[in-house]
């Protein structure tokens, strides 16, 4: 294992300490592994809280900021935060209008969020939950509720954040988040593994010339493993699999996120984006506000994911609404 760390035990806490001290204009950590906005949202705004394991920056903590999230509970690398941390994050995010819990569909996270919400219910705090389950490779369409949440979370955070900023109540913000989550489909391809510091060795291995289509962000088994092929061939298959799951008619407007899993450089992402645009536009599908870069990672894993969000007028307005965090800013006037 070759990493710039001091010790695997301190890795997460030192990372959060650095994150908050580098960007005090966005982040504060009032309690251990509970990240909130350094300038809290106005009273009466619906709070939005996420949470999950470390090792995915900018997911989860990174998306705390105006127009996005109010708080995040952070676990160890690839491990759920405790229900106690989640409960604290929700309490910090509460501004008198209830709190939406918005996170990826992973068993441990779901249990801990549900437990936290049950405890807070006893205190009279209102919460709602929307799970993001956008990874088409993790379960067939017939069992879509079992799918894992990956980069589609970025869109869900953005849309929910904009709906809350626009003054929506808890019901409206929940509906917006659900609509965003349901409009997203993602698929990933892995080229090389990452190492969880406390494990010290890769959680899976891939041959020098092998890739795995559909692999999950923690190394969960994918659809196939085979020889590396060209960028265009990889993209063609990814787009086809997403469209098979969510048909897109000519004239449909979409946003696409070409995301690095960590080690894959922006140059390769732009090669991939070029192909995504070619094949979608050839079918009359219009790309709005594409995102290309590191938005949801697995530390040093090489590979990329592709997310497509089908837009309607409402989603497009929320997508373009102003938002800011250390990793992503939307000025609000982008066409």
């Amino acid at each position: 294992m070759k990493k710039i760390i001091n010790s695997s035990v301190d890795f997460v806490d030192e990372m959060l300490d650095g994150l908050c001290s580098a960007h005090p204009e966005y982040y504060a950590q009032p309690e251990r592994r509970v990240l909130v906005r350094s300038v809290p949202a106005r009273d009466g705004k619906v709070g939005i809280v996420t949470g999950g394991g470390s090792g995915h920056l900018p997911i989860f903590a990174g998306y705390v900021g105006p127009g996005l999230l109010d708080g995040a509970a952070i676990g160890d690398v690839f491990a759920s935060p405790s229900s106690d941390q989640i409960r604290k994050a929700i309490k910090h995010a509460e501004r008198g209008a209830g709190v939406l819990c918005l996170y990826g569909n992973y068993g441990g996270d779901v249990m801990n969020f549900d437990m936290a919400c049950e405890m807070l219910e006893l205190e009279g705090l209102r919460t709602e939950t929307v799970l993001v389950a956008d990874d088409v490779a993790s379960a067939p369409l017939a069992e879509a509720a079992k799918r894992r949440g990956v980069a589609g979370m970025v869109y869900a955070f953005k849309i929910a954040g904009a709906a809350a900023d626009a003054g929506g109540d808890l019901t409206a913000v929940t509906a917006a988040a659900r609509k965003a989550a349901e409009s997203c489909r993602s698929i990933g391809v892995a080229l090389s593994p990452c190492i969880v510091p406390q494990a010290g060795k890769p959680s899976f291995t891939l041959g020098e010339d092998e890739i795995e289509m559909g692999m999950g962000i923690h190394g969960e088994r994918g659809i196939w493993r085979n020889r590396l092929r060209s960028a265009d061939e990889i993209v063609d298959e990814m787009v086809a699999r997403l469209r098979e799951d969510m048909p897109l008619a000519s004239g449909q407007r979409v946003s696409v996120l070409v995301n690095s899993l960590g080690a894959t450089p922006p140059e390769e992402l732009y090669v991939a984006f070029r192909r995504v645009r070619q094949i979608l536009e050839a079918d009359g599908i219009r790309i709005v506000m594409p995102l290309v870069g590191r938005y949801a990672t697995s530390m040093e894993m090489a590979g990329m994911s592709l997310t497509v969000m089908a837009l309607d007028d409402e989603l497009e307005t929320w997508l373009k609404a102003p938002a800011a965090c250390a990793f992503w800013q939307v000025a609000g006037d982008r066409a």
């Binding site: 676990g75 160890d76 491990a79 759920s80 935060p81 405790s82 229900s83 106690d84 941390q85 068993g107 441990g108 249990m111 801990n112 437990m115 405890m119």
Partner: peptide, 10 residues
């Protein structure tokens, strides 16, 4: 709840 984040703990 306080000491564990694992599914079995929850």
């Amino acid at each position: 709840q306080e000491s564990s984040a694992s599914s079995f703990g929850t």
